[in-house]
Simulated scan of single mutants.
Amino acid sequence: MTGTLTGPLSGRVAFVAGGSGPVGRAISRTLSGMGASVAVHYRSSASAAHEFAETLDSPSIAVGARFDDRAEVDAAFTAVESALGPVTILVNAAHTPSPVTAFAEVTDSQLDAQFDSTRGHVVLAQRALPGMRRAGWGRVVYLSGALMTRPYAGFSAYAAAKSAASTFTRYIALEEGVNGITATVVALGRVIDPDDDEPLDEAHQQFAERLLDRMALSEFPCVDDVAGVVSLAVGPHSTHLTGQTLWVTGGEPIA
């Protein structure tokens, strides 16, 4: 934590689930730069998450929790509320990685892992909603994937879990709008992290090449591009942006 920053989100507290990952870090930096205090959620790599939180421009902390565990999520939110104040922005960028597996070979453990991520989104949002209702203002953003509507072999469990969580997000928008709460899905294709030079395995490389051939733009979006779209969904002009899916896919056809 380096100090207090004024901006369009000054006075707001954002909980960024998966905030220690590449996309989550970009989102946390952007929201902090807009004046929000940020809770950087992590599931592992505690020391790295705490070090990152200390670099942000607004009062921020790191909190650990299994995001599909109600007791751990409640403890994390309680810590954030004590340190920073009530959470009125929830951004869920957390999801369990998925190996490339043909549908006929998807295992029960893979299904459990993927749908635990869906359960996690429900748990996080249900914990955040009461505080948002009391404030009369709230923003929920779920980072989904374009695979939920654009099938690609080997990603069935991941895509189904993303689709389910996206549907829950739209229902949050429908049912909580009366309380001043909006909910938006940000659906990603392939996203580049400029700080990651790890080569893709063969299956993911083939997937990336196919996506690039289908895109209107000539390069993949980067993590900061995603953060910019999230900032739109929670920023001062987001009042009537709800129940929508914003596609950050470089113009790749979805249908």
Rank of each mutant, 00 (worst) to 15 (best):
M1G: 12
M1I: 07
M1R: 11
M1H: 10
T2N: 14
T2F: 12
T4W: 11
G7T: 10
P8T: 09
P8D: 14
G11V: 08
F15P: 00
V16A: 06
G18Q: 03
G18Y: 05
S20N: 14
G21Y: 02
G21P: 05
R25E: 15
A26Q: 10
S28T: 12
R29A: 12
T30Q: 14
G35W: 11
G35K: 10
V40D: 08
Y42Q: 03
Y42D: 04
R43M: 07
S47C: 00
S47A: 12
S47K: 08
A48Y: 01
H50A: 09
F52N: 05
F52I: 05
E54V: 03
L56R: 13
L56K: 13
D57E: 14
P59A: 15
V63C: 08
R66S: 14
D68E: 15
D68N: 15
D69V: 02
D69Y: 01
R70D: 14
A71E: 13
V73D: 02
T78W: 01
V87A: 04
A94W: 05
A94R: 02
H95Y: 10
P99F: 11
V106A: 08
S109P: 00
S109Q: 15
S109W: 02
Q110R: 09
Q110P: 08
A113M: 07
S117L: 03
R119W: 04
G120T: 07
V122A: 14
Q126F: 03
L129S: 03
L129A: 11
L129K: 05
M132V: 11
G136Y: 06
G136S: 09
G136P: 13
W137R: 04
W137G: 01
G138V: 12
G138M: 10
R139M: 09
V140Q: 06
Y142D: 00
S144V: 03
G145I: 00
L147F: 01
R150V: 01
P151N: 09
P151R: 09
Y152L: 10
G154R: 03
S156R: 04
A157E: 01
A157G: 04
A157F: 01
A159E: 00
A160W: 08
A161G: 13
A161K: 04
S163D: 09
A164C: 09
A164M: 09
S166M: 02
T167G: 12
T169D: 05
T169E: 06
L174W: 04
G180L: 12
I181Y: 06
T184H: 02
V185N: 15
A187N: 03
L188Y: 03
L188D: 00
D193Q: 02
D193W: 02
D195E: 14
D195P: 00
E198A: 10
L200K: 06
L200V: 03
L200A: 08
D201W: 02
E202C: 01
H204L: 15
Q205H: 12
L212G: 05
R214V: 00
L217W: 09
L217P: 02
L217Y: 12
S218I: 01
C222K: 12
V223P: 06
D225G: 06
G228N: 13
L232F: 14
L232K: 03
S238F: 13
H240N: 13
G243R: 09
G243D: 10
T245K: 02
L246E: 05
L246D: 04
W247T: 02
W247I: 01
P253T: 03
I254V: 14
